[in-house]
Design a binder for these strands. Structure first.
Lengths: 216, 216
DNA sequence: TATAAAATTTAGATTAGCCTAAATTTTTAA
DNA sequence: TTAAAAATTTAGGCTAATCTAAATTTTATA
């Protein structure tokens, strides 16, 4: 099959394309914690294998084949996260590193059985959609809570920041997936957003509001 | 931590020491599917890391540290096999290769949670004992069914051959872990062993009888 | 629109793990 | 007990993935 390294490159490229519509050498290096020169080497190899479209100095996109491998990795990552949270009782901020290893377990049969065991979930614990075994994935239309206008309500459906620190903050303040929030105040000169949930009212920073994603 | 390769060497050495009381360069090479020269290279490295006791031309043994790493890998392998069989409904002849990958997932917390989730099983689906999280393992006293004398009974508790072909044969003939068998005939010039189980009587070859392990 | 800055690629090395072929040591057996 | 066979190690090389430093290309800006 493909090496862990190749899989990680394809996944990083996939995420960059989804989140920023482009994947450049430097961006890939930053997201993998390697150097640009190493990325260039790997881009040549992935290009030779027809997993990416690559022209020197021009950035990359995934071929159909490359994208389907990337989606397979994403599927495994997210299904394992479901398992870790729902069956092994891990918190949503604890599972990323473990899933980062588990996503490279190769058996397709295993992942399909795991999918079944988990009841074929559509979303992982962070609200990210799980590709099915054909590589089809729900195209989420979410917006940052910061874009809600005063008195507008929405349901928390995802996060734009997956860092443990942010996830722990949300857990602590009960701003979790599925919760309905209503913006009570939002002013230009104030650095915070006021909102209420089912149980309480609170203030969050604009930075936090930017990273809480609302279903449209 | 340690590389997958190092872990695989330590595990192979552990199994050789358990099964044959010695681990030589050629044996290690054979069990890992590599060449003796490669093994020598790795033995030097493991010795430098104080994971094995190694003197040129003399074979190896594990240090306390090396053995505890090996037992950790064995623990993970066998717990994942339990999970695959009991939760994901795989057959006992299908799980080896998947467990071979899963055993390298590093998180100790994950494996302890998995242990708990599975109800802290003492044995894996093939009857092999599972080390606890302190590296303690039940020392099994088993004997090949071939050593039973005529009219003697015993309970199948393990297998000496883990190959899918052998496991499938046992499955098909219902000679599975926990089954009580009684030897009805066993003669020097006959190449087969006659026995009866709860439901039926049958003949098995001496080769098969040698690989079925009975609790003493 | 030239030129400085930023981004990217190339060149040349390094490390882990593996290999083959040759040399060495140990074991076996005549 | 010594010569042949077997086991093991050494020597020298290969590949994948990484790095730094230097060269090249693109982009931004004065």
């Amino acid at each position: 099959m493909h090496s862990f390294t190749e899989e990680n490159y394809l996944k990083a490229i996939y995420h960059l394309l989804v989140r920023r519509q482009s994947a450049t050498t430097n961006d890939i290096a930053a997201s993998l914690g390697t150097k640009a020169a190493s990325v260039t080497d790997m881009l040549k190899k992935l290009s030779d294998k027809k997993l990416i479209h690559y022209a020197r100095y021009q950035g990359v996109t995934l071929t159909t084949n490359g994208e389907s491998i990337a989606l397979g990795i994403v599927r495994k990552h997210r299904l394992w996260e479901c398992f870790l949270v729902e069956k092994l009782n891990f918190k949503w901020d604890e599972v990323h590193d473990m899933a980062e290893e588990l996503e490279h377990i190769s058996s397709a049969k295993l992942i399909d059985r795991l999918d079944e065991f988990m009841g074929c979930p559509a979303y992982d614990p962070h609200g990210d959609p799980i590709p099915n075994n054909k590589g089809q994935i729900i195209n989420q239309q979410l917006q940052p809570a910061l874009q809600l206008s005063k008195h507008q309500s929405g349901i928390i459906a995802g996060v734009a920041d997956h860092s443990p620190a942010f996830l722990q903050y949300l857990e602590k303040t009960q701003l979790i997936i599925g919760e309905t929030i209503t913006v009570t105040d939002l002013s230009d000169y104030d650095i915070s957003v006021s909102l209420k949930t089912t149980n309480k009212e609170m203030n969050i920073s604009r930075e936090v509001a930017k990273n809480i994603l609302i279903a449209i």
